[in-house]
């Protein structure tokens, strides 16, 4: 078990290093965006003095290196700074209430919503895709296999908003089973939330199933020529059991990796679906913040996205290591 622990610690350290490098990239990239917040908020009639005052107030007049380390130091303490857009510039007219919304306060509910949507989608999509992949491998080259392949490919090839509208048409307009708007808010019961989230989750399921299903199928079929599968067949084991018990455990590593990639996508890349269903997730907040150059929010979102990617890939790595009996049970 020691060697596994060592590998995991190594991966963790590497993950942290990656996150650090990513933070530099994020900071640099965000600061290279043309225009700045002061100009964006004051508009065309801004006087140079007013721009300067706001810049100073927000600390934008300091050098980029200083700002980076201030931001990083804050982020390490869990303080992601204050949102520019929510800041109260009333102080310029002598009426500063002193209340500013922190980025964390602003992001937290949105992030929770995004995780909820991702969680519901994963709960539907992962079992669905893996089962479909196993069945496709079992009945490979049959009509079922082809239909499964073609339909998942079709759904992944169509734009997300299109799939969303198709689902709205069929499940909300023609057969009003589910609500077409997913405007969830605090104080809703879990059931209500789930009902409102179901349609975007189904849309996303259609988007992510193809990868996972095809990888499951391919990873299993890849193993079917191996001697231990032949052995299982020659022991008179039923085809379904051959695949689930003999092929699947050895095919887990690539499947886990593809699942992790798709889960990361569910957290970071679902802005279009959020917009279509008016779902208050982090993606919308992110896009809005970019529009008005709300740098602290943009940076925080980027950092969360990066962390999600790294964490999920790390988890996939660790799980695929654990799926290998050679590492779990050394000689």
């Amino acid at each position: 078990m020691n060697s596994v622990l060592k590998i995991i610690l190594q991966r963790l350290a590497l993950g942290l290093l990656t996150l650090f490098i990513v933070s530099i990239v994020i900071f640099t990239a965000v600061n290279m965006l043309p225009g700045d917040f002061a100009q964006a908020i004051l508009g065309q009639s801004a006087t140079p003095e007013a721009v300067e005052a706001i810049r100073k107030d927000l600390g934008l007049d300091k050098g980029p290196v200083t700002r980076y380390f201030e931001w990083l130091g804050g982020a390490l303490r869990g303080d992601l700074g204050n949102s520019f857009a929510q800041a109260n510039f009333a102080s310029f007219v002598g009426d500063d209430s002193g209340v500013r919304t922190s980025v964390a306060q602003q992001i937290a509910p949105r992030f929770a919503n995004t995780m909820f949507l991702a969680g519901v989608t994963a709960a539907i999509a992962v079992p669905f895709a893996v089962t479909l992949g196993i069945l496709a491998a079992l009945y490979r080259n049959s009509v079922f296999d082809r239909v499964a392949n073609i339909s998942t490919l079709t759904s992944i090839s169509s734009p997300e908003f299109f799939m969303a509208y198709v689902l709205i048409l069929f499940l909300a307009v023609l057969n009003p089973i589910l609500p077409s708007l997913s405007n969830i808010y605090d104080g809703m019961s879990f059931g209500e939330r789930l009902e409102k989230t179901l349609l975007p989750a189904l849309t996303l399921t259609l988007v992510v199933t193809a990868h996972m299903m095809r990888m499951t199928r391919a990873a299993i079929i890849n193993l079917l020529a191996s001697p231990y599968i032949e052995m299982a067949r020659l022991k008179g084991i039923k085809p379904m059991r051959v695949i689930v018990r003999h092929a699947l455990p050895n095919a887990l590593a690539p499947i886990i990796n593809v699942i992790a990639l798709n889960l990361a996508y569910l957290i970071t890349g679902v802005v279009v679906v959020e917009v279509v269903f008016v779902y208050p997730g982090i993606g919308q907040l992110f896009v809005d913040s970019v529009k008005i150059r709300d740098i602290p929010v943009v940076q925080a979102c980027c950092l969360i996205f990066a962390a999600a990617y790294i964490l999920l890939n790390l988890l996939a790595d660790i799980l695929s290591i654990l799926s290998n009996p050679r590492l779990r049970h050394p000689k």
Partner: peptide
């Protein structure tokens, strides 16, 4: 019918046991 015989009445011993045992079990 064949599956009912294989393993039960007719068994097979392969060339490479290392490859023919499932590494996961």
């Amino acid at each position: 019918q064949k599956r009912a015989l294989l393993g039960k009445r007719i068994a097979y011993v392969a060339q490479s046991a290392a490859a023919s045992f499932n590494p996961a079990h």
